[in-house]
Design a protein around this nucleic acid. Structure first.
Lengths: 211, 211, 211, 211
DNA sequence: CATGAATGAGTTTTCATTCAT
DNA sequence: AATGAATGAAAACTCATTCAT
């Protein structure tokens, strides 16, 4: 207890150039693994290789950190999708296929795919966040999907369906897999094969079940 | 410890014949509104019109209460579905339509529809529960859906599709709406109309998008 | 849930002739095993084969039960000792020997030997009890011991010692063994042999260590 | 007695360099006064002038604090005794006298004298602690006493007595006074005078009662 | 009298947040 | 700026005691 007086010198090491993005990445991973409530700020700090206090230099509260995680994870994704729709030159069917393959597959193995699950699970705690997320993300995603279907109808590729609700059906199927990916996939004796899922979904949506 | 012998407690009001089902109902409602972690046992007690201690007479821990909520909410639902599939005499298409209308609509406005969301959001906390739920509920639901599709293929109604994955697509779309119902529907400028959703889903699944 | 309405008949069984002494005996055993604080009234009730409520018919509080346990366990013991001293006809040495053999050995294997330990361990909780016990029991025991030594000095058997403190020494050695009996004897590789202990104590006290 | 009430400073500011030893000291005092179960961690914190949370920085549980209290209080004491026996050059009688005076008197007015009482009273709660304490402390103390008596016999000073049991008698008398010191001495109309007690004990043990 | 379901005050422990260094 | 020791509010769970039956 008193034998290392000389070690008193050991002073706190100082880390320069803390990158908030590292904190966000660490927080996302932990929020997904253990949920928001069960993740301690200290865990985030350790995982990010940063001191507890340093987090508060960038995020005033745990809630602010959560919101940053959500923003950082989904805004780029939806922007990518919007850009692709705006620039895509091929048929509506090819566009839908490209989007689904590109997005679902691209994010399948990155933590970003779990943001949706995160918001669903923990948005209670943050009065405004659910509304904000819904408007900024969910509705934008729906708009993208609606635009694609409309394009297909306009071009004569697709039947004249209930565009709004068809968009909900397709997005629902996709989102649900992303959610399950982070909640119960570990227990599935046959974990989802994402490419196969996208292919089957496309086939079903395009051709239907009936002969 | 130190007992305050001088001050005698005010007369406690006594409730007879506490029904554990009332506690479960109250707990479900609160878990859905605020999440598992954010729901205090005292809140559940107050909502059920029962004392805090009384809850522990029936559920040894908060986790046990959670599990009871889950069991009570979903087991009857899945059993109903299995029974309907076993007894249904009509075509596969009619069976699917009946199931989707019956179950989704029946439960849409009851708290039971939120159990799925609850498990997805909070299963972290309970090592065994997610696995248990997945095996007892999710896989059973998938089996039901697979059986219906198989029946349709056998009867010549349906194309010869990838049964397992088509089941995942359909269930995903449905489940996702139930999940959203309890997480973000309040923020949707056009809240889902369940009947319309089922109709569109059936139409899409049966006929596909293509002309 | 509703299938056994006929079983409503199951009525509480009624036990007649509850003997408070059984409750006291059960309480003593449990207080010794687990301490006062760690013993639940329900445990006492079950051990005594009585309902929780019934205990309160005889003992208004847990503290009252504790006091009854102490009274029941030691008052007879000290009265026995006083009577023996009053009636004993032999030498002081024989009286001391008789008392020590009689009391220590008689109570060694009964729970009564643990009352002293109980009071020492838990008297905090009960402001008046320690004082009461000390006056009613400890000082009476000391008086008995003092009387014996005085008798020996008067008869010329014993040296003219500091009577009060010699009594404390002798009682201390005895009491300590009773206390250890109920706290740590289980861990002693050589548990105390009570007869040997009494014999050695008598020999030491009578003859001393020196040659 | 204990007069730390004067230190009731309402600390609003931060305290630096908390010394766990202060927490241990405060805990010992309170455990002795009120028993383990009746002492709230908050009491310990207040008595130590520390926040409740700070205690958990050094002691993971209340039990760990208890064990630290025991270790800190008795290990140095027994080591002192062993060292004195090893180094003492005089007669066995002088050694015994020195030890008894030195230890009993030295610790009489420090809280350390109550550790023994503490373990006896509350060891129930901690499965391993009683055994550990008994082996590490009680048996070591017995060995010390046995060594002294053996030395006296070897040198011809003492009679050839039952060494093991004589050690138990002597230690019992001493320990009991330390125990009483912390349980009932307040109620004794003639509180023990420790020097007188040691002198009388030595005289009795050396010379016996008989003429 | 006897029962045991119901009550709710009380305690340990955790962890977001602060701030002296 | 960065650190991490210190703070204290909050919540699950226990159990002495009551009282409808």
């Amino acid at each position: 207890m008193s034998s290392h007086l000389s070690a008193q010198v050991a002073r706190r090491s100082r880390r320069r150039d803390i990158d908030p993005a590292e904190v966000i990445a660490a927080a996302l991973e932990l929020f997904l693994q253990r949920g928001f409530a069960a993740t301690r700020m200290e865990d985030v700090a350790r995982a990010a290789g940063v001191s507890k206090g340093a987090i508060y230099l960038y995020f005033p509260t745990k809630e602010a950190l959560f919101r940053a995680v959500v923003q950082a994870g989904v805004v780029p994704r939806i922007e990518e999708a919007e850009a692709e729709v705006a620039n895509f030159a091929g048929s509506a069917r090819e566009l839908l296929s490209s989007l689904m393959h590109g997005l679902l597959l691209e994010f399948w193995d990155t933590p970003s795919s779990g943001i949706h699950k995160l918001v669903i699970a923990d948005a209670h705690h943050f009065p405004g966040l659910a509304a904000e997320y819904f408007h900024d993300i969910s509705l934008r995603a729906r708009d993208v999907m609606v635009a694609i279907i409309r394009r297909g109808i306009a071009s004569g590729e697709f039947r004249d369906v209930d565009v709004e609700y068809v968009a909900r059906v397709i997005l629902g199927a996709l989102d649900q897999q992303a959610v399950l990916r982070h909640s119960m996939q570990a227990h599935d004796p046959e974990p989802l094969q994402p490419e196969r899922f996208v292919d089957v979904t496309l086939d079903l949506i395009m051709n239907g079940l009936l002969k």
